[in-house]
């Protein structure tokens, strides 16, 4: 069991990360990965020039690590890798990469799904959408809270 968390201030390359993750495994039969990309438009349909992710060094890493530890307790996964961008992200670029491994596929799928729902609401970031005419800070949405709620009745061992 290994949990790896990294904040990436520059460039996140999901393909290279996935290859390295698979290479590092020791006998697992399943790997699931998720890559989140920056959408080029806001919820209101405005064109975005960038997304700035502010973070609190130490606290942000801890928030992500807590989420990974919870996932490891709930699902029979072997390894978890979470890499999250910080700083300015451009449209189309990867913001987050999550990979999970397990002996059989179900746990890896569920853990990756769970990790993303938790990261979307509980990761310690403050996001600012930049447009050609200005910028604004965004807060968690009701949908994010609902996605997280999906997991509230699932306990370790289920």
């Amino acid at each position: 069991m290994a949990i790896t968390i990294r904040l990436e201030p520059e460039n996140l390359q999901p393909d290279a990360e996935l290859r390295a993750f698979i290479t590092s495994l020791n006998g697992d039969g399943a790997v699931v990965s998720f890559t989140g990309l920056m959408r080029p438009t806001s919820k209101e349909g405005e064109a975005l020039t960038g997304l700035f992710l502010d973070h609190y060094p130490g606290m942000t890493e801890r928030s992500i690590s807590d989420i990974a530890t919870d996932a490891a307790a709930k699902f029979a996964v072997e390894d978890i890798l979470i890499i999250h961008r910080c700083g300015l992200v451009l449209p189309g670029a990867a913001i987050v990469f999550v990979a999970t491994s397990s002996p059989h596929r179900r746990a890896a799928f569920e853990a990756a799904d769970y990790l993303m729902d938790r990261l979307k609401s509980d990761a310690g970031f403050w996001k600012r959408e930049d447009t050609a005419t200005g910028s604004h800070w965004i807060e968690p949405t009701a949908q994010d809270a609902k996605d997280k709620e999906r997991w509230s009745n699932i306990h370790a061992g289920n």
Partner: peptide, 10 residues
């Protein structure tokens, strides 16, 4: 000591 607005999440 820090003051923080609501988290945006990842």
């Amino acid at each position: 000591i820090a003051f923080i607005p609501p988290l945006s999440g990842g």
